[in-house]
Simulated assay, not measured.
Amino acid sequence: MRSSEIVIYTDNGNAPVSKLVGTACTIGIQSFISNALFDLSGKCTLEMDWPLESSLKNGDIPVAKEGGKRKILVALGGEIFTSRVWQACSENMGGFVEALVDFIKDNQFDGIDIDWEDSEALTARNYDAVAFLSDLTLALRARLPAPDYVITHAPQAPYLDKAWQGGPYLEVMKRAGSALDYLNIQYYNNPWWVGDSGSEQAAKVAGTTGSPAFATSIVGLVEQWLPVEKLLVGKPTTAQNAGSGFLDTPDLCHDVIAPLVQKYGSKFGGVMGWQLAESPSSPDLALDWIASVARTLD
């Protein structure tokens, strides 16, 4: 029987994924591949941010797996990955995929998380974002077969809203959802799609209150045909890890997670936390958050 996932990111050199040892986390994500450069032939060279580079130098990836207890993915993108670079990736898909697959296998990762946040492309239309994300996912899956490798995406909540630029990730899921394991949906930093209080987030994040369900909530997305087992509630682990959307852990568990567990049981995809450290530079870890979420999912 499947169980709901607990996914934890880290993008802090003081808190590499190896610090997940001993926790209930089932998938750890080390961030970020932060840039891609292409020569005239289309060959791609990937660049890393310092936390990812440090984790590789220190041998954190195999340690973090804890003898097979969890999968460890590498994150691609994030807010510093520019629209110009995403466009270049779309124009050199073969070289880009080759570089990503080599990076994953050479560094003993169990897959990849695609953190595409290029809202600019949806208005500038400098490349076809939906086609790119769909084709990238399918090409990676062809080289990284399941279940040995995991492929996730981390869309912001508006990307799943038909009323916002057509809901680009709804179309990505139609085209490439079969090749994708999970959506780590970012329910933060977009106040209209998230809410503030526990009761607001019960409606806008969980979707277990209000009728009809809020469109980008978990219940709302399931009602639009997305499989609940692929949908994860992504939340900041502390107020310092996001501009908005943080909910105190007891309220998060009571108002958002527990109602989804009650409604869907172990079919519910799970919960994602950004991030392991209590702030982008803190050495202190959000271990109590992970433990509380795990108890609520159990």
Rank of each mutant, 00 (worst) to 15 (best):
M1T: 12
T10F: 06
N12R: 10
G13S: 15
N14M: 01
A15F: 10
V17H: 08
V17S: 07
K19W: 05
V21R: 15
I27Q: 01
F32T: 12
A36T: 10
L37K: 15
L37T: 11
L40A: 14
L52W: 00
P62D: 13
G68W: 02
K71D: 15
L76D: 01
G77E: 04
E79Y: 07
I80T: 05
C89M: 13
S90Y: 07
V97Y: 03
K105A: 03
D106N: 14
F109V: 13
G111M: 10
I112D: 05
I112C: 07
E117G: 03
E120V: 08
A121C: 00
A129S: 15
F132N: 10
D135K: 07
L140T: 00
R143I: 11
R143K: 15
Y149V: 13
Y149C: 00
H153I: 01
P155L: 07
P158K: 04
P158T: 02
W164E: 09
W164V: 10
M173H: 09
D181C: 12
I185D: 13
Y187H: 13
Y188V: 15
G195K: 02
G195E: 08
S197T: 15
G198T: 07
E200A: 06
Q201K: 14
Q201S: 06
Q201E: 11
G207P: 08
A215I: 05
S217M: 03
V222Q: 08
E223D: 11
E223G: 10
W225A: 15
L226K: 04
K230A: 03
L231W: 00
T237N: 10
A239N: 09
Q240D: 15
Q240S: 14
S244I: 05
D248N: 04
T249S: 06
P250M: 14
V256E: 02
L260D: 04
K263G: 12
Y264E: 08
G265C: 02
F268L: 15
G270W: 13
L276A: 04
S279D: 01
S279W: 03
S279A: 13
D284Y: 11
D288T: 15
S292T: 10
L297G: 00
